[in-house]
Amino acid sequence: MTALGVVFRPQLPPERLRAMVRAADDAGLAELWLWEDCFLESGIASAAAALAWSERLHVGVGLLPVPLRNAALATMEAATLHRLFPGRVTLGVGHGVQDWMGQVGARAESPLTLLREHLGAMRALLAGERVTTEGRYVRLDGVALDWPPASAPAVYAGARGPRSVRLTGEAADGTILDASTTPEGVREARRLIDEGRRVAGRTDTAHPVVVYLHAATGPDAQARLRAELARDGREGTPGLGVAGGADDVAKGVRRLAEAGADTVVLQPTADEPDPEGFIRFVTDEVGPLVP
């Protein structure tokens, strides 16, 4: 079964989040996802508010840039959310956009090493372990959480390049792929993830894959989608994004699911005229068409 989500785009002001959460909760949306893009909105603060404002909504953050975050602090925040809202949170970490990391003086010489070290520390701390490590970037001396979650939660990682995607299979509990990923790209990512899992001896556990999908509906859907892809420099990429009615969007979701996506998160255009209406469209019209 494919889970459906929608992104709350941080191009919307933070004060719009509550209405989006209420719309998602009322409509029965499975998952609402948030971003921590520089220099828009905090992923953790937004997630905490969204969880508190809703009754059943699952909230994902995809993703938190690790160069911005000390591993111990990120894990404390994650543990707090998991204890306050057990079973309703998915947190993903990743390299972050390197130009943005440079702007704040946090650009790592080896983003891959940093992500590997951060994932190792975060997963161990969330599992209740006491951690001492002297890595290139992550250094902890006898650190343990006083309030770890009751059971170790999954930590996802976002990735795009092949080495990073392979690392998510080796060191993370799930993978987040951005909206530049075609169905063929999902298949290739699954292959790389499985390579990493074999290297780490982790083939006995499931490894969920979350994929974002550009989506637009309404009378100007095609034009808005083309403009969005053009802004990303990806206009004309075959198999990327979907515009139209519920049937069209559901077909795009099914193509990604057949390629290996466990969760498809529909990403409206930054200029979506009715974000709450988009949520209702996804739940009421697209959802029944997706197995």
Rank of each mutant, 00 (worst) to 15 (best):
Y156D: 01
V155W: 01
R160F: 13
A144F: 11
T168K: 02
Y156V: 04
S164F: 08
A150D: 15
A150R: 14
P149I: 08
R166N: 07
A172F: 03
R163N: 11
G161C: 06
A171T: 04
R163E: 14
G158M: 01
A159S: 03
G161P: 11
T168N: 02
A150M: 13
P153T: 09
V165E: 05
E170N: 08
P148L: 06
S151Q: 13
S164A: 15
S151F: 03
A171L: 11
G142D: 07
G161S: 15
A150K: 12
L145C: 10
R163M: 14
A154I: 03
A157I: 02
S151Y: 03
R160T: 12
Y156R: 06
G142L: 07
W147E: 14
A154Q: 10
A150G: 09
A152E: 12
V143I: 15
R166A: 10
P153N: 06
P153Q: 01
V165Q: 10
A171V: 04
A152Y: 08
S164I: 07
T168M: 04
G158Y: 00
V155L: 14
R163H: 13
G142E: 08
G169C: 09
A152G: 12
V155P: 01
L145M: 13
E170P: 03
V143A: 09
P162M: 07
P149K: 08
G161T: 14
L145Q: 10
E170S: 05
V155Q: 03
A172V: 04
W147P: 04
A172I: 02
L145F: 10
A144L: 12
A152T: 12
D146V: 11
P162S: 06
R166P: 06
V165I: 15
A152K: 10
A154Y: 05
G158W: 00
R160S: 14
P162A: 15
A172L: 01
V165W: 00
D146P: 11
A157D: 01
A172G: 04
L167D: 02
A159P: 02
P153I: 06
G158R: 00
V155T: 04
V155F: 01
A154N: 06
P162I: 11
P153E: 07
A152V: 10
G169Q: 04
V165F: 06
G142N: 07
E170C: 03
A154F: 05
S164L: 15
E170R: 12
P162Y: 11
R166K: 05
G169E: 01
A144M: 12
A159L: 01
A144I: 05
P149L: 06
G158E: 01
D146Q: 11
P162F: 07
G142F: 07
A144G: 13
G158T: 00
P153L: 11
P149A: 06
R163Q: 11
G158F: 00
R160K: 10
R166F: 02
R160A: 10
R163W: 05
G142K: 11
A157H: 03
A154V: 05
D146N: 13
P148T: 09
P149F: 08
P153K: 05
D146E: 14
Y156G: 01
A144T: 14
G161E: 15
T168W: 00
A171P: 02
R163T: 08
A159I: 01
A152W: 09
